[in-house]
């Protein structure tokens, strides 16, 4: 098995280039083979980036923008990026071997009749019936031949999908369950309990993890029919930015403020503010009676509305309407 249960602290670090948003940037460290997209094609973006990976992207780029004018530059950068005798770049070695489809198409985009092959195929892929109203395509031998080729390929692709589905139907449930079990075994060794939240009177020394308290509050909120609970954060009532509380740290002893996000059912009988108010009371009651937590305020944030008032069981498995 490739994955060990030990987290690699470096695995998720974002790459040095910072053009993308924070959420997406960290993924690029996992093996984006085209990291130089917004940089100069020769810019070195890191150990896995390098100049060797830029040419395919440059070629792709040039194709769309200017099929003829850019091809020379593409080839030039390809040549310069793979100098003879240079150290092999594991990220790029075969991209420009002879079987690479990007190498053989310069100037071939246009059919003899003047139609563009990529546009023709894309139209067909988007909507095979699109050409019913295009007399040229039906009569043109070039267009017809080009479409026949794509149809042939499409037939094989559909066969491939069917075969995959047959195989999946036979084996997938057991495999998927096994993989999910393995994932959760690892996850349970890496739980994130969050900060410790004070329980009881100010002079006591009792604490509960934020995740445990949040679970209690979400369950309380979801006892309101049709409500699904989302985010639930707990902060000191006196203010202070919750985001800077370190994991595992303790909140100061004293009353707290609970902020819970819900998806509320859209019902004619009960207006949304009344539902939110009811959720607030349920959370406050749970804090008082189930946990013994001193809660100064409960903020209910309605993040979405659901059309169907039927209550989901738990954890949002229900597929209720959303519009």
């Amino acid at each position: 098995m490739a994955m060990s249960a030990t987290p690699d602290p470096h695995e998720n670090e974002p790459p040095p280039v910072g053009a993308a948003g924070a959420e997406s940037a960290d993924d690029t460290s996992e093996g984006n083979d085209f990291p130089a997209r917004n940089d100069s094609p020769t810019g070195n973006t890191g150990p896995s980036g390098g100049t060797g990976t830029a040419p395919p992207e440059a070629a792709t780029h040039g194709r769309g923008a200017s099929p003829h004018g850019s091809s020379t530059a593409d080839r030039a950068s390809t040549a310069s990026a793979q100098p003879a005798g240079g150290p092999p770049d594991p990220d790029a070695p075969r991209t420009h071997s002879g079987d690479d489809p990007s190498e053989d198409d310069d100037g071939a985009d246009e059919l003899p009749c003047g139609r563009r092959l990529d546009a023709l195929w894309e139209m067909w892929a988007d909507d095979p019936a699109a050409f019913d109203h295009d007399p040229h395509v039906a009569e043109c031998p070039h267009c017809s031949a080009a479409l026949a080729e794509l149809r042939l390929l499409d037939g094989f692709v559909r066969e491939e999908i069917e075969r995959d589905e047959q195989v999946a139907a036979q084996t997938s449930t057991a495999h998927a369950g096994r993989v999910a079990d393995r994932v959760m075994d690892i996850v349970r060794t890496e739980l994130r309990p969050g900060a410790s939240v004070p329980l009881g009177a100010p002079d006591e020394d009792q604490w509960i993890t934020e995740t445990a308290a949040a679970r209690t509050f979400r369950e309380a909120a979801e006892r309101e029919p049709g409500v699904e609970a989302g985010s639930c954060r707990i902060a000191p009532a006196g203010g202070g930015d919750r985001r800077f509380v370190r994991p595992g740290a303790r909140l100061p002893r004293g009353p707290v403020r609970v902020r819970i996000g819900i998806i509320a059912p859209l019902r004619t009988a009960t207006p949304v503010p009344a539902i939110a108010d009811s959720v607030r009371k349920r959370v406050a009651t749970a804090a008082d009676r189930e946990l013994g937590m001193e809660v100064a305020a409960v903020d209910v944030v309605v993040v979405d509305l659901a059309v169907d008032p039927d209550a989901p069981d738990t954890y949002g498995d229900s597929e209720e309407g959303s519009q």
């Binding site: 959760m184 996850v187 739980l191 969050g194 949040a214 985010s231 996000g261």
Partner: peptide, 24 residues
Amino acid sequence: VRAGEGDEKAFETLVRRHTPVLLT
């Protein structure tokens, strides 16, 4: 959102829901 706040049961639902397609 819940999983991001440490709710591993919410994460498990996501894992079981999407494992088949990612396996494919």
